[in-house]
Design a protein around this nucleic acid. Structure first.
Lengths: 224, 224
DNA sequence: CCCATATTCTATAGTTCTTTAGAATATGGG
DNA sequence: CCCATATTCTAAAGAACTATAGAATATGGG
């Protein structure tokens, strides 16, 4: 056991690293970045056994990355603060930069098109007032109501096929969903393209938009 | 073993986390942030057994955080790029923000004064041309020659006691050394204060200065 | 007060990581 | 070509972490 004099300092730093060293915990953090969840919701949404979800949440809490509150018989977890979300984003960018295997896994999961042709948050921010684009929020309507990209229209993926005629054909459609590795918006883009629309996904979803310090709107919006 | 669909992505992210989960590796990264080193130099400077140093360097290289080059019979390691240094800094800030135990360990290691009364890089940058401060680089002269805060005078800690009369008594002295947890500049500050000087350390040392995107000067500088 | 539900705690098997000894490799000098 | 030096590879013991079963706790309702 190495015992250099700064060991206590680096041991503490390593606690953060260790907490970020588990795929399960990183997944939970990404889900929590979408908003507050109960243990059961997390378990279901992240597709992780309940007991393991609870156990990992204890570790996240011990590292002060999440906080919890009890409401009746449920316990709600959320990210400790907005800085955690930003740091997560930094980790993801940093990792993507240097691990080709990560870029490959993302490409495999989302599809190559979703990665290569994605609109960046900066690009979208610059074109918010451009009449040549329509922004479509393909998450469940409740998520849209809780906060969305300014001007974004809510068309949940499940309804998209039946509501194609609400969308204009002469402009570019930018579709987004929640997390940075969410497959919903790539699926929406594929569906739209199959029907002759010009569509691209938003890189990193709403999470990256928020992490870039971009504002959100709340409340509902009607179709264009 | 959890097997949610995004697992391959998060497994890759976790590789970076895992690499940052060891006190030994974090220490090695901080030493490498000071500049290129051979395995033996690292082992000695970080106070970690040679074989363990080598083993951990393999892992850092596998995660693409460091690169190496062979020169004759030595192998030199360095951080893979400047982004690694910045990310390290972000990790350190992020960890310090939420782990009271880390702040305590730093306080214990450096002394409370060094933490509470340190000059921030921003503050120092704003006062670079202020005639009311003198910046003293207390690292070995060779390190100073390789790069230093603009205007900084080289007075290695070992020589400080004998060169006190070179320093002005009517201005504030800012002393700095290399890494964020380096004890050399706090020691210099204590020595200076004991001799009636007004002195403060630079928070985070030259590492934080560099990570904040501040420029360096190279070459030698004479005493004030 | 007892019950059902949601979550956490305790204990443990299995896995992975760390450390280090000993063997192996690579380089330059004689 | 052989040797000394610096580093890495291989192997193995020990420590730490993950996942999960089973027991325990906390809450609100009847």
């Amino acid at each position: 056991m190495a015992e250099f004099p700064e060991e206590p300092i680096y041991r503490q730093l390593a606690r953060i690293g260790r907490t970020l060293a588990s795929p399960v915990r990183l997944r939970l953090l990404d889900v929590l970045d979408q908003g507050e969840r109960t243990v059961e919701q997390l378990s279901e949404e992240a597709d992780i056994p309940l007991k393991n979800t609870s156990a990992q949440l204890q570790q996240l809490r011990a590292a002060h990355l999440v906080t919890s509150r009890r409401a009746g018989t449920r316990v709600y977890y959320r990210l400790a603060d907005e800085r955690v979300s930003r740091f997560l984003g930094e980790l993801q960018d940093f990792a993507a930069e240097r691990l080709a295997d990560l870029r490959e896994a993302v490409s495999e999961h989302l599809g190559e098109v979703a990665v290569l042709e994605a609109v960046t948050a900066d690009e979208l921010a610059a074109r918010l007032d451009d009449p040549g684009i329509v922004i479509v929020d393909v998450r469940p309507a409740a998520d849209h109501a809780r906060g969305h990209v300014p001007g974004a229209v809510s068309v949940p993926l499940a309804e998209l096929r039946d509501r194609l005629d609400e969308l204009p054909r002469d402009v570019e459609i930018v579709a987004y969903c929640g997390g940075p590795y969410c497959v919903v918006s790539p699926q929406a883009v594929r569906l739209l393209r199959d029907h002759g629309f010009s569509a691209r996904p938003l890189a990193g979803g709403l999470a990256r938009w928020r992490r870039a310090g971009r504002g959100l709107r709340t409340g509902s919006a009607t179709a264009p």
